[in-house]
Every structure is written in structure tokens, then in C-alpha cells.
Design a binder for these strands. Structure first.
Length: 254
DNA sequence: ATGGCTTTATGCTAAAGA
């Protein structure tokens, strides 16, 4: 089972990129983030054999999960705050695997209400994972976490020291989720530096390889046992009018 | 870098992203 995640930064602008990439890679599942629209071009992907689940929102956020196999939608709302209307969460079940697609809040600037919202969101995610690990179902959490886990996951740790993606409280909240028993699929197989998934549009970040690793695939123990490979596909980041993120993929046995 | 791009919107400047 080939599973991918990609923050496309507007599905409307990136539609041709996504279609081209799907044709070349044909993943069983693609989880997308930052669709930036209320409507989703479902027919474009249905024509390619994909079934679609999505949660849209005008202008901001938005997540979608595409699958070659039947999709059961569990929920499009992260439990723990009924007043939260941001489209950042989509939980589905495909081929017996629960797939949690997330667009975790950025959190900047940290001296605004955005940062406590991020930390609260991470705590809600932790609670959800806590509930799920009692089930026997295998599950994974994938998407744009907006968390740089370690110094080695950014080109210049000092430049990120006070950023919401890298503050000690942010990394502690991320570790608290991992410590429930999840495995970072990419880190497990490729623990070295320079495994970036995002490069800023500004200041030649892509040409200078000044990136950060913030898109992750976290596996429950039963899925960690099935992990065959995990890699970041840098190719689409080099395309004309690219998203600032590039896809991450995991291949699971069975 | 109180932001050098990029995207969206009761749009032509402001807000958000990371």
C-alpha cells in the first residue's frame, strides 16, 4: 500500500501538478493539505480512478484524501473543541487502515492567539491518538505538522529558534504524541540531516536547499511492523509555479 | 528581516503562510 502526503498550497492553482504527479506515481492514497477553497475538483480525480473525501473552507486550510480503494469517512473534525471551524482534519478508513490527514496550525506569530491554538490543537490530537491506540485497528497520522522535530531537520536552527514551528514547547508537544507509541516513518529509515519537505518561496531557499522537514507520516505499532520504505519526492518542488511543499511517501507491506 | 514570494478575496490592499 503506497501512501502519500502533500501540502499543495491551493488545489485550484496546483491541479495540473497534482494530476501529473498522480499519473506518474499512482499511490493508493494521497492526503492533501492547504487546498485553500470551499469546492474541490472531484471529477478531475474521479476520472483518474480515485475516490475522494474532503473538508473544504473558503480561502484557508482544507484537506482531502484520494484513494484507489473504497473510502469510509470517520470524521472531518478533530474532537475536543466543537467551536473549531477550521478545516484541518480528515479521518478515514481505507483497506482496514485508519488514515488521519492533518494540517496542523502554523502558530505564528507566537505572541498572538495563534500559538495557544496550535498547542491546544496538538493536545487534542494527542487525546485522539490516545483513544485510538486502544483499538486493534492499525492507524497513521500524516500531513503538514508544521513542526521541525530536531536541529537536523532545518538548514539553520538558530534562524528558527523563536519560531512556532521550532519552539521547545512545540517540539515537546510533538514528542508527547510520538511517545504514545508512534513511529516517524521517514526518521526511522533515514535519520540523517537534509531530509527537507518545505522550501520557502523567498530568498532562493529552494536553489540554496535551505529547507525544513515539517511534513510527516507517523505510524501506529502495527503499521510500523509493515513499513517497507519511506521517501521524499523532491521533483515537484522544482516544477514551474510549484507548491512550497513537496510530497512524502510511505510504502507498507500488504 | 516588523518578510525578500505566493495565494485568496463582498479584492486593486490586506491577511496568512512558515
Amino acid at each position: 500500500m503506497k501512501i502519500a502526503s502533500w501540502n499543495v498550497n491551493s488545489i485550484k492553482t496546483r491541479l495540473d501538478h497534482v494530476k501529473t504527479w498522480l499519473e506518474k506515481n499512482r499511490p493508493d492514497v494521497l492526503m492533501m493539505q492547504e487546498l485553500k477553497g470551499e469546492v474541490f475538483p472531484s471529477a478531475e480525480f474521479e476520472a483518474m480512478g480515485y475516490q475522494i473525501a474532503y473538508r473544504g473552507q473558503k480561502a484557508y486550510n482544507g484537506v482531502a484524501t484520494l484513494s484507489l480503494h473504497p473510502i469510509e469517512i470517520i470524521t472531518d473534525q478533530l474532537p475536543g473543541d466543537d467551536g473549531d471551524e477550521q478545516a484541518r482534519y480528515l479521518e478515514t478508513k481505507i483497506n482496514g487502515v485508519r488514515l488521519i490527514n492533518i494540517y496542523l496550525p502554523n502558530g505564528n506569530p507566537v505572541d498572538t492567539e495563534k500559538y495557544p491554538y496550535k498547542l491546544a490543537w496538538m493536545n487534542r490530537l494527542k487525546s485522539r491518538v490516545q483513544d485510538l491506540r486502544n483499538d486493534l485497528d492499525p492507524f497513521l497520522v500524516a500531513g503538514d505538522f508544521n513542526v521541525i522535530p530536531r536541529d537536523e531537520d532545518c538548514y539553520d536552527p538558530k534562524a528558527w529558534a523563536n519560531d512556532a514551528l521550532f519552539l521547545p514547547q512545540t517540539r515537546a508537544a510533538y514528542r508527547a504524541i510520538l511517545n504514545l507509541g508512534l513511529i516517524d516513518a521517514h526518521h526511522a529509515l533515514h535519520p540523517g540531516p537534509n531530509n527537507y519537505t518545505y522550501w520557502d518561496y523567498q530568498a532562493g531557499a529552494w536553489l540554496g536547499n535551505k529547507g525544513i522537514r515539517i511534513d510527516h507520516i507517523l505510524l501506529s505499532p502495527l503499521l510500523a511492523d509493515r513499513l517497507q520504505s519511506c521517501f521524499i519526492d523532491r521533483e515537484p518542488r522544482g516544477w514551474d509555479k510549484a507548491s512550497d511543499h513537496t510530497p512524502i511517501l510511505a510504502i507498507l507491506n500488504g
